[in-house]
């Protein structure tokens, strides 16, 4: 693997916990031209309203973030000059120096939002994707901080939680998700997770053989799908550290902490009970 991205456990590269029949996205940033077709195609299919209107000055990213009405978000990072301040002329093949990446819900193998949801509104579908059932959600908002990637958000209009459904309605009818279909350069690819992961590994090897040493997969057990998440069904090929794209490098599944947290709380309860008995004894 790359010398640039220090991975915790290299044996985990390409490892993934997806269940049989899992479908997902491979977003290959090296092919992304930053056109934002995915953002619009998603809004078109899912009939999502305009949001976050305003000029940010953050390169060409005026979207800012994944949100209740933005389920694809293209990140723009300008790294035009080298360390000496010289503008780049000869560059790596494929996307370089102006990084663009179409972010999306990761559809985790073990999903924080799903496990947090107290109403059972968030389900795992037969495609191993994670979907919020809008007829159930009551807007408690607990899935929002429970996502280690900052994906779901409460809508300001219907006050329910929303995020990418991986076009569950389209999948159910045998259609490709809107963003992957629209993507002009096939930066967004849709398919069975195992096949995509194989393809991603071939592609990374190809990129590295062409001199793009920094290419790697984000969203396997080695990076991105770590800490009990066990892999993302929507994963990425990146060429810079995850943080550059505003992604956590080694996220954790929050619910893995619940048992131990309750245990210490139980301990504290015991201690406080004893203290109460001691203090209040007549």
């Amino acid at each position: 693997m790359s010398a640039t991205i220090p991975l915790i456990d290299k044996t985990m590269v390409g490892q993934h916990g997806a269940r049989p029949g899992a479908m997902g996205f491979l977003t290959d940033t090296t092919l992304c031209i930053g056109c934002k077709a995915c953002e619009v195609a998603c809004k078109q299919w899912n009939q999502l309203p305009m949001d976050n209107f305003g000029f940010t000055g953050h390169s060409y990213d005026n979207t800012g973030d994944l949100a209740a009405a933005t389920w694809r978000h293209v990140v723009f990072v300008e790294q035009i000059s080298d360390s000496t301040g010289q503008r780049a002329t000869a560059m790596a093949p494929f996307q370089s120096n102006w990084l663009m990446m179409s972010d999306v819900c990761k559809h985790c193998v073990n999903a924080g939002c799903l496990e947090a949801c107290p109403t059972g509104a968030i389900i795992r579908t037969e495609f191993d994707t994670v979907v919020i059932q809008q007829d159930i959600c009551n807007g408690c908002g607990y899935c929002i901080p429970a996502c280690p990637y900052g994906v779901p958000e409460l809508s300001a209009t219907d006050h329910q939680a929303h995020k990418c459904t991986l076009c569950y309605d389209r999948l159910d009818s045998g259609l490709e998700p809107a963003c992957a279909k629209a993507c002009p350069t096939d930066s967004i690819q849709f398919g069975p997770v195992t096949a995509l992961m194989e393809h991603a590994q071939t592609r990374v090897a190809d990129l590295q053989s062409r001199g793009v040493d920094s290419a790697y997969i984000y969203g396997d057990r080695a990076i991105g799908g770590t800490g009990g998440i066990d892999g993302n069904n929507a994963f990425f090929i990146l060429t810079a550290e995850p943080e550059v794209y505003n992604l956590p490098a080694y996220p954790e599944l929050p619910q893995d902490k619940v048992g131990r947290a309750f245990l210490t709380t139980f301990g504290a309860a015991l201690a406080l009970g004893v203290a109460a008995v001691v203090a209040l004894r007549g």
Binding site: I33, G34, R87, T89, A90, M91, F94, Q95, W98
Partner: peptide
């Protein structure tokens, strides 16, 4: 200008 086309190019000549 360095545009989105340049980002995909092997060589950008300003």
């Amino acid at each position: 200008r360095f545009s989105r086309t340049s980002a995909m190019a092997d060589l950008h000549v300003a």
